[in-house]
Write a protein that binds this DNA or RNA. Structure first.
Length: 314
DNA sequence: TATACGTGGTT
DNA sequence: TAACCAAGTAT
């Protein structure tokens, strides 16, 4: 049976994240923290920095919590059941079922976006998401075998990602084509139906770069909310209008660059103005000096890594 | 049930 | 090129 630690880690990394992006990060991670005990013992900031660039940083915050819970409350062994796993932070319906099935051989019903799509088409479930979820789950339950549910789940996910794709599904190559009601009805590429997305608002902020003797002033963002717990450049508020120097972490004087960083988050776009100074940081702004030459190791989220790239060469 | 939460690849 | 979307979870 596969190592539960690795199955758990890979499933969490793969949440909303492509296999290509996860591959090298997974390898580096298990080399550094080969088991649950080593991860549980690692300092928060090392773990957050190691997650930098992967996005959805609550995953990293929950990863630490779960690792420590397994060590403190389960003697260092993962709970071997779907229900037990589901109680750990960061393991939702999908991940708990996937780990139970793949790492422990439990018959669990594994439903991710791939399975959702395959099953919606197989049974021609035309109800739009998310209302269709109960029906899709029930249908998946009906076709999940008693034995090797983990292999079944992975096969369904592979089918969804390689053949039964969102656009232009390759029905001619599909092993389920004969049984697929959506294919018969000629509506495969329209399922599952989804409500249209809301428009993404755009916000503005300013990133501040204070440099002294080859070092830059970095802060740690609040534990909750956007980029929570991550090391970052200081910023003022993110608002509808350009905030200028509002919320600056020092008296300056500030030089505002004739350049911005435009970054797209899930639910809003951000245009970051860039301001630079060689003054003193405010006492109120808790932070640390970081060598500019070692900025890659600071573990900055992508938006700040991009801002820093612009700022350090000016 | 709806919203907050990142990033990079594909079309 | 702007959308769209990916092996989702928490609240």
């Amino acid at each position: 049976m596969p190592d539960p630690y690795r199955v758990w880690l890979s499933e969490v990394m793969l949440q909303q994240t492509t296999v290509a992006a996860v591959g090298p990060r997974f390898t580096a991670w298990v080399e550094r923290w080969p088991d649950i005990a080593s991860l549980a013992a690692a300092p928060d900031e090392a773990i957050m920095a190691a997650w930098a660039g992967l996005g959805y940083y609550a995953r990293a915050r929950n990863l630490v919590k779960a690792a420590r819970a397994v060590v403190a409350e389960h003697g260092g062994q993962f709970p071997a059941t779907e229900a037990g796993l589901r109680a750990l932070p960061g393991l939702g319906a999908y991940t708990a079922a996937a780990v139970a099935a793949i790492a422990f051989g439990e018959r669990a019903v594994v439903v991710d976006a791939n399975v959702e799509r395959v099953v919606a088409r197989l049974f021609a479930i035309a109800t739009p998401l998310p209302a269709a979820r109960p029906a899709i789950r029930a249908a998946t339950d009906r076709i999940t075998p008693q034995a090797r549910a983990g292999d079944f789940a992975q096969a369904m996910m592979d089918l969804g990602s390689a053949i039964c794709t969102v656009k232009k599904p390759q029905c001619l190559l599909c092993p389920l084509a004969v049984d697929c009601r959506a294919r018969v009805e000629g509506i495969a590429d329209t399922l599952p139906a989804k409500a249209p997305r809301k428009e993404r608002p755009s916000r503005h902020g300013t990133a501040f770069w204070i440099e002294q003797e080859g070092q830059v002033w970095l802060v740690r963002r609040p534990a909750k909310g956007m980029l929570g717990g991550m090391r970052a450049l200081p910023t003022g508020p993110w608002e509808d209008e350009r905030p200028g120097l509002a919320g600056a972490p020092g008296q300056g004087p500030w030089v505002i660059l004739n350049d911005t960083v435009v970054h797209g988050f899930t639910h809003f776009g951000l245009e970051l103005a860039l301001a630079k100074s060689e003054g003193e940081p405010d006492d109120s702004a808790a932070g640390e000096w970081w060598p500019v030459a070692d900025l890659e190791t600071a573990g900055l989220p992508t938006v700040f890594a991009r801002a820093a790239d612009r700022l350090k060469r000016v």
